[in-house]
Design a protein around this nucleic acid. Structure first.
Lengths: 229, 229
DNA sequence: TGTACATCAGTGAACGCGCGTTCACTGATGTAC
DNA sequence: TGTACATCAGTGAACGCGCGTTCACTGATGTAC
């Protein structure tokens, strides 16, 4: 009674089910954490035999990898979009936007944040496909630094010889000429962001800080001053 | 053929086995991570029936809690000792010592670091006994800030009203009078430290930064300047 | 347009595994009189 | 100092569970001629 299927219908259905599996897996991840993610549970929820999942992902590990790549890409996209929405010259505004986009994503997807920035899942070694997506968000920050470096130089401690050489070579990635002292502060700022969110999601601010939004915003502002002049 | 056992021998043996269980569990933790820690594996290694472990810890969760408390105490002690070994007036030296003690502990005990500062173990809720040990290391930093605040005030952004009030009340814990702006930077420094180590242990510096010792030292020095003047 | 064959998605049973926890028990260690 | 009883540590079997992965299979969808 239906039309003869268009060629490629199989491919489309396949893509849809692949997505459905990932979506369900993400939901399980969100409620149980990465190490509790089970292929069987996902299959059960989709009302298919557990063996059927193997037509889409060759192993549990492959599914995890797909989720990791998606997570990196999602946060990367959001940070890129937040940055892109700002006036290019408003460096402080861009930093604030980046920071808030990052934390916003992390707090709405805590387990995905844990998946990529949390303690490594035991026995899981990240394959090479994750490398590029992993750098997306950080590249946005690096480019902001490059854009901002034309301003008057900040007074910052100078890294010692070997570290300076390494930081200089990192700068080549963005083709700019960010001074090593600023790259160093940039890395520290990245760590600060990840650390803040890690502490927050790990419950370490419980009974310590309640005004977390305000503290984060305040911290990002202070960091921007240090970083962008 | 042995002397009649002194009273309390049972208690001593008990304490020793309790320790042995914790030590073995720590070793398993170190090789597999928290969510893979299994009572049965620990019992197997100690060549006792798995049910015997229940004479010492009422559940797997209780064992985990004991390990968490130990971890907080160990890192707390090491940070306290590093700080205590410094000249009281050498504030920069104290900050460097604290930072390096913390990272030193974390890199030699990565899974224990993950246990307390990593992504929360799914389904595990930290009981109240962990609260006090959890604050040991942070208290050392807070006291340093209090000691250092008598110096000339640094130029730092002022937190907005509600955040300022909260930070002021945090200061009361050390009975000193650390200005809120410095407390805020202190919290950020704490996050920076945790974030740096998280990134490092999570492999995020792989192929990015090789001079990690130097970068960390450099970062701590910059932070100290910001924090202590 | 029709037929013959190849590809693919999905099934259900099975393998082998390890886990946390409980239970009734044995035998040794401690305690009261 | 000796006896009777209570406490405790440790055992081994069992319960019930869920997991990842493999395999031979059925039936539907696509492709070549």
């Amino acid at each position: 009674m239906t039309e003869p299927a268009a060629p490629g219908i199989r491919a489309r259905v396949r893509a849809e089910l692949t997505d459905a599996i990932k979506t369900t897996a993400r939901a399980h991840l969100a409620s149980e954490g990465a190490s509790a993610l089970s292929l069987r549970a996902v299959a059960r929820e989709l009302e298919m035999a557990s063996s059927a999942v193997y037509r889409y992902f060759p192993s549990r590990e492959a599914l995890l990898t797909a989720l990791i790549i998606d997570a990196y890409n999602t946060v990367g996209e959001q940070v890129e979009a937040a940055d892109a929405a700002c006036d290019r010259e408003d460096h402080h505004g861009r930093w604030a936007a980046i920071g808030s986009a990052f934390r916003g994503w992390a707090t709405t997807n805590p387990h995905e944040f844990a998946l990529i920035y949390g303690s490594p899942v035991p026995g899981y070694a990240a394959p090479e496909d994750t490398i590029v997506p992993a750098t997306r968000a950080t590249m946005v920050m690096l480019r902001l630094l490059a854009d901002a470096t034309v301003d008057a130089p900040r007074v910052l401690p100078e890294p010692e010889e070997r570290l300076r050489l390494e930081l200089e070579s990192m700068d080549e990635v963005v083709g700019g000429s960010i001074p090593p002292s600023i790259i160093a502060v940039g890395l520290a700022a990245w760590a600060e962001m990840i650390g803040f969110i890690t502490l927050e999601l790990g419950g370490h601010f419980e009974n310590v800080v309640y005004e977390r939004d305000a503290l984060y915003t305040h911290t990002m502002r202070a960091t921007a001053t240090r970083l962008l002049g």
